[in-house]
Computed example of a mutant assay.
Amino acid sequence: MQSLNSLSRYAPYALGLLRIFAALSFISHGTQKLFGFPVPPSWGMPAAMTLPWIAGVLEVVGGTLVLVGFLTRPAAFVLSGMMAVAYWMAHGPKSFYPLLNGGEPAMLFCFIFLYIAAAGPGAFAIESRKG
């Protein structure tokens, strides 16, 4: 067990990598809604100022803040709440089971961002730089 405990010294780096890769994936949902990149949404591009468009803006702006590690905790907290709302508005009514309602990504993003809001940005963050 001693060898596994020694892995804890890598925890800030693992948290930083989780933050970066979750944010990159999250941003792609926003660029899809706002710019049709890498592919337009199957349900069509949202009109400006609609709920899906606002979600896209939050995904790009908030995701970028989390990605670079600037204002990480408040941005991650807002994104966690957004994903909880998205789950219950878009997925929960379809079925109780996340596997059946397509809500697994929303649930994972919700709890990953909640963890980042609580734990902080980890390594590789702008706000963690000294000097």
Results as ranks from 00 to 15, higher is better:
92 G>D: 11
96 F>K: 15
72 T>Y: 03
74 P>I: 06
60 V>W: 15
21 F>T: 14
60 V>Q: 07
38 P>F: 04
122 G>A: 06
123 A>C: 12
98 P>Y: 05
129 R>S: 14
127 E>V: 10
103 G>V: 10
22 A>Y: 04
51 L>C: 03
29 H>E: 04
101 N>K: 06
127 E>S: 07
48 A>Y: 00
64 T>F: 04
94 K>M: 06
71 L>Y: 15
23 A>L: 06
17 L>D: 02
41 P>R: 10
69 G>W: 10
29 H>Y: 07
94 K>C: 07
54 I>M: 15
43 W>M: 15
44 G>A: 10
76 A>T: 03
45 M>W: 04
8 S>V: 07
129 R>Q: 14
4 L>Y: 13
75 A>N: 07
59 E>H: 10
93 P>M: 02
2 Q>R: 15
116 I>K: 04
82 M>C: 05
58 L>K: 08
107 M>L: 11
73 R>N: 01
31 T>N: 06
93 P>I: 06
4 L>N: 03
88 W>M: 15
111 F>Y: 09
73 R>A: 02
85 V>M: 01
82 M>E: 15
126 I>R: 14
57 V>Y: 06
116 I>N: 11
59 E>Y: 02
78 V>H: 03
100 L>P: 01
117 A>W: 11
87 Y>C: 09
114 L>G: 12
69 G>I: 01
60 V>Y: 02
105 P>G: 05
110 C>A: 14
7 L>T: 14
4 L>E: 04
45 M>D: 08
35 F>Y: 03
32 Q>G: 00
118 A>K: 04
88 W>I: 13
71 L>G: 08
10 Y>Q: 02
13 Y>M: 13
55 A>C: 03
35 F>L: 12
35 F>N: 08
54 I>A: 01
66 V>I: 10
102 G>D: 11
89 M>L: 15
49 M>T: 14
113 F>C: 05
26 F>E: 08
103 G>K: 13
93 P>G: 06
74 P>H: 04
115 Y>I: 15
119 A>R: 12
89 M>S: 14
39 V>D: 03
44 G>P: 01
44 G>W: 12
128 S>W: 13
49 M>D: 00
71 L>W: 12
53 W>Q: 01
6 S>W: 09
124 F>W: 14
90 A>I: 08
62 G>L: 02
40 P>D: 06
120 G>E: 09
58 L>P: 01
37 F>T: 00
64 T>C: 09
116 I>F: 09
25 S>P: 05
